[in-house]
Design a protein around this nucleic acid. Sequence first.
DNA 1: TTCCAGCATG
DNA 2: CATGCTGGAA
Length: 350
Amino acid sequence: MKISTSILNWFDIVKRDLPFRKNKNPYNIWVSEIMLQQTKVETVIPYYNNWIKKFPDVMSVAKAEEDVLLKSWEGLGYYARCRNFHKAAKILCENFNSKIPQSWNAFIGLPGVGEYTAGAVLSIAFNKPFIVLDGNVKRVMARVIGRRKLSKYNINLIKQTLKKWLDKNRPGDFNEALMELGACICTPKKPKCIGCPINTLCIAYKSGNPLNYPSYIRKKSIPNYTFVGGVIRDKDKVLIQKRNEKMLSGLWEIPNKKINSVKTSKNELENYIIKHYQLSIKIKKKLGVIKHSYSHFNMNLVLFDCIKYSGITKSQKTYKWIKKSEIKDYPFHKVNHKIFSLFKYDYWTI
DNA sequence: TTCCAGCATG
DNA sequence: CATGCTGGAA
């Protein structure tokens, strides 16, 4: 039996019933593939369902405000995916009659669409004979053909092998099946080789030590940075700002700043607020330390409860004074939700 | 508390 | 080749 047949037969029986597998609507498939980048299926499901309900097609995304889209993405992380999807939808609206292009070159030219997403969407939604190579497929293939190092040479070997194996009648199902195999059977830690449909020809399995494939790649150590932040109150309102940096761009947060020493945190916070808002504040008390990990650094945020002492800063495009009940109206990144969870009821005091 | 998974971009 | 996020397992 052909290898693709073994894999497809297995997939047809055990495949998970996921919301984005209900139909082959190209838009839906695309949304799911963007959300699934760097993100687990279980995390994606509620976001996907909500998104499809709110934004059922390309046009609805193109017409939406970025703030509104980010609000639906809030908590999912890697927010550039959302901003890029917005850009891509606008491009499709203007130049492609709101249709998702079926050609490789046109589709991969869109913001946020790389080799993986192009291959996945075109094969799954349009049955085009493209392979996909995500983390799951790499691991499965490294084990099956017995390659320990994911070197450039071996990646290329894997691609060539995949092209040979790809089921030309069901390329999308074949790709999904391979990823499903990686997610459910051929897992990184405890692969369930006994239940694997292709274990008889898997070199890693036959070697007795499938975990050796592919070899472990050490990660470089992640630095710890200290930040200071202020919950700056004026009556029943708190000052928030909209980020404009690359990281977390478009998301809202309480004013904060990276510092070198915890010792000077109060001064640094006061100076920062004066400089940016022409606002003098009175620091009431320390609220705690928020810990959060990003891909390339860990954050320790020293948080202070402050009241506005003097100065006027009116709400504008990138700064707002909001009541606690207005949190729902703005997209905040995770750290701020950790902060908000400190406050009970409708008050900005603990 | 630490470690790990996971694709696109400049 | 470094950067971008979060959740969940170890």
